[in-house]
Design a binder for these strands. Structure first.
Length: 423
RNA sequence: GCGAUCGUAGCUCAGUUGGUUAGAGCGCCGGUUUGUGGUACCGGAGGUCGCGGGUUCGAACCCCGUCGAUCGCCCCA
């Protein structure tokens, strides 16, 4: 016997209730996205490596060690997408979608990151994604967040709050960053090992360190608000008042920064409330939906300066929060009581007629007659219909079992089909 | 990349300080409950105890390695 190959680490085969929950998330997203008139876009799963390296930031962990990169036969370095935004930006530029600007785009699909798998985190994972490109106004941020908020509500997810921050414009962000470095460098020796390293690579990240040693110094660290330009402040005020008007609840998160270089102004995450049921289900992964404004991204890919905002959410994480979803019930189970040609065709034909009229049907025609009934009963079918023959081999009229209303609905469907045949 | 815990039947798990042919439930297949049938009962198939070494008269159990899984750290959705 040849050995069965193992699945790749960090990949998942999703089935049953989990797969139903996954589908429910995607279907709900598709429905909500249409309500906000986001247009569907499909993109390649892989790109030239530089697309991600240049836009996400060379020094980020994603680019430096988490990308699935490989050389193709022509010797070009390609990478399985670790996120959507960079690819969408590339597509926007290479297809001249400026002509549609401002344009609202939505997509979903698999992403890849070479990371150690754990609860709510995989090497191949899936996201839903929404972007507004070419809109500089804070109203775009508001609309995008309103959609996220509505999506979570329609998924029935509770105990999750929008954490909101601003990183200011490019200058504000740089000034803040410099002040933070000064602040933390003064106490460098007392910081955790991780944060000493972050000081060089990504000082903003020290702000949400989980280490107690760092948290003492985080409290009195410089705040972004001190460095905001008037424009940046006005922008953020417009976003928050817009959210209030739209009825989207939010809370200020002064130390919320996002990992990627391209963020400016608005940054946000939807995070389960401390101690909530949702928080428990997610383990140590807390963010279920995150994003922000990335006004500088297009330029890093050689395009004209183009304002944009977007977010992405992990489908697996959302699916964990929507909980078990049962598959739709079987409506009609057709049991064939023997193995003659006549009986089998009767069963197959009946199921076909039912399905043509939108009634979910399945035929049970394997194993002993007793097992067929057992399986039909266990299938949870609302109506069981049995075909048998009399002693002389004549097909008997089918017998139906189930609630009167259910039987009537199935019978009605079968009659409808017969009527159409006659016309 | 680092740490902790765990790998026994298709699935969920027992397996007493190391001691005969490794068990149960569910699922699957066949049958009985002398008619139609979610019950109950009987029987059957199915296991290199993750893999490789070692210790021992003897290893599912102890030791080392390795692979995998889970959870956490880093980072992130």
């Amino acid at each position: 016997m040849p050995k069965t190959p193992q699945a790749i680490r960090g990949t998942q085969d999703i089935f049953g209730p989990d797969a139903e929950a996954f589908a429910f998330v995607v279907e709900t997203f598709e429905r909500v996205r249409k309500l906000y008139r986001f247009r569907r876009v499909e993109m390649p799963v892989f790109e030239k490596t530089e697309v991600f390296a240049r836009s996400i930031g060379e020094t980020t962990d994603i680019v430096s060690k988490e990308m699935y990169s490989f050389d193709d036969r022509g010797g070009e370095s390609l990478t399985l997408r670790p996120e959507f935004t960079a690819g969408i930006a590339r597509a926007y530029l290479s297809n001249g979608w400026q002509q549609y600007a401002p344009v609202k785009l939505a997509t979903h699909g698999p992403l890849f990151r070479y990371e150690r798998p754990q609860k709510g985190r995989y090497r191949q994972f899936h996201q839903i994604d929404a972007e507004i490109i070419g809109a500089a106004e804070p109203q775009a941020d508001v609309e995008l967040l309103a959609m996220a908020d509505q999506l979570l509500k329609e998924l029935g997810i509770e105990g999750v709050t929008l954490h909101l921050n601003t990183l200011g414009d490019g200058d504000s962000r740089e000034a803040w960053r410099a002040a933070l470095v000064d602040h933390f460098r003064a106490v460098k020796d007392e910081l955790s090992e991780d944060s000493q390293e972050r000081l060089e690579k990504n000082p903003l990240r020290i702000l949400d360190s989980k280490d107690r040693r760092d948290q003492r110094f985080v409290a009195d660290a410089p705040k972004i608000d001190q460095f905001l330009s008037d424009d940046a402040r006005a922008f953020f005020d417009a976003v928050t008042s817009g959210l209030d008007a739209a009825g989207v609840k939010w809370q200020r998160a002064e130390s919320l920064v996002r990992g990627l270089d391209y963020y400016r102004h608005t940054a946000f995450e939807f995070i389960p409330d401390e101690g909530s049921e949702a928080a428990g289900k997610l383990g140590s992964q807390s963010t279920i939906l995150g994003g922000g404004r990335y006004d500088g991204l297009m330029e890093s890919l050689g395009g004209a300066a183009t304002p944009a905002v977007g977010w992405a959410a992990g489908i697996e994480r959302l699916a964990m929060l929507v909980g078990e979803r049962e598959e739709d019930a079987l409506e009609l189970a057709v049991v064939v009581e023997g193995d003659t040609e006549q009986l089998h065709s009767a069963g197959v034909r009946t199921a076909m007629m039912a399905r043509s009229e939108g009634v979910a049907a399945e035929v049970f025609a394997a194993g002993s007659p007793r097992k067929r009934f057992d399986k039909a009963v266990k299938s949870g079918a609302k109506v069981i219909m049995a075909f048998g023959e009399d002693g002389e081999g004549n097909l008997q009229a089918p017998r139906m079992k189930g609630d009167e209303a259910d039987i009537e609905r199935v019978s009605h469907a079968l009659r409808e089909f017969a009527l159409k045949l006659r016309d």
